[in-house]
Simulated scan of single mutants.
Amino acid sequence: MLELRPIKNESDYRAALEEIEALVFGLWTDDKTSASIINALVAASQTLTNLKAVFVGDIEDLEYLISPIRQSNFSPLLEAYPNLEVLQVRGDNHPYMGDIGLEFSPALRHEKLKALIVESGGISHLSINQICKLDLPALEYLELWLGSDDFGGDSSINDLMPIISGVFPKLKYLGLRKSAYSDDIAFRIVNSSIVENLIELDFSMGNLRDDGAEALLNCPAINQLDTLNVSNNCLTNWMIERLNQLDIEVISGEQKYYEDRYSSVAE
């Protein structure tokens, strides 16, 4: 915990900055992208030497809907902070007024990043491809809100195949949330060895239906999970009952109408 104490001089100020381990950025003051925040963090990298976690876009719906939050290129941040362990981003990846939108370019290797979270109304296939090209040997937690095509979520199961095939070998939590093609993910993931290493598999806020859940039930490796999250999908009560018979924790929560093909939180 950071100890609060009076700052009497520049030396005390620099020492206080060096103790900061996490920074959270909410609503910025203009309608442009987060590039100004990224640039400021990069410029401060020689001072914020102990920074381990960054969240850009801690903005609630009452302040701003998720899709109009304009993000930018996060690779410079990863390059500037080789000891960063957690990166969380909330917002859209649509280019804005000539800006690039959410991006991870160029591809790079980061030795320490353990958690990457991207919450979006829709992640483009280009952004997912860029994430898959990152060399993240320590990554244990990956959460992607895939979203809908109306808000830039134009990815498909083919874009996720590097993840499902094990491009991040140390993953313990995989959240492919808010997906408009949850069944396709289920059909592919049950034929991958990635499940054998996971602790939690999270399909929440998507449109998983009984066919996809049936594939999960028929996969022996699912029983090696600690937690399967299928909340806020399109499952029938009959399927929920069957899933609850698994010898693991199943989070089912409320379900949408069975014929609802839309993911949640897409705006």
Rank of each mutant, 00 (worst) to 15 (best):
R5L: 08
R5F: 06
I7N: 06
Y13L: 15
A15D: 14
E19D: 10
F25N: 09
W28F: 15
D30N: 15
D30R: 14
D30H: 15
S36W: 11
L41S: 04
S45T: 03
N50H: 07
I66F: 01
F74V: 01
L84P: 00
I100Y: 10
G101Q: 14
E103F: 14
R109L: 08
K112E: 08
L113N: 07
K114Y: 09
E119H: 10
G121I: 02
G122Q: 06
H125Q: 15
D135Y: 07
L136K: 07
L139N: 06
E140C: 14
E143Y: 11
L146Q: 00
L146Y: 03
G147H: 02
F151I: 01
D159L: 10
L160P: 02
P162L: 01
N197K: 15
N197M: 10
L198Q: 12
F203G: 02
N218Q: 11
C219R: 04
Q224I: 08
L225K: 02
D226C: 05
L228C: 14
N233C: 04
N233A: 01
C234G: 03
L235E: 01
M239E: 00
I240L: 04
I240F: 00
D247W: 02
I251W: 00
S252V: 07
K256L: 03
K256P: 00
Y257C: 07
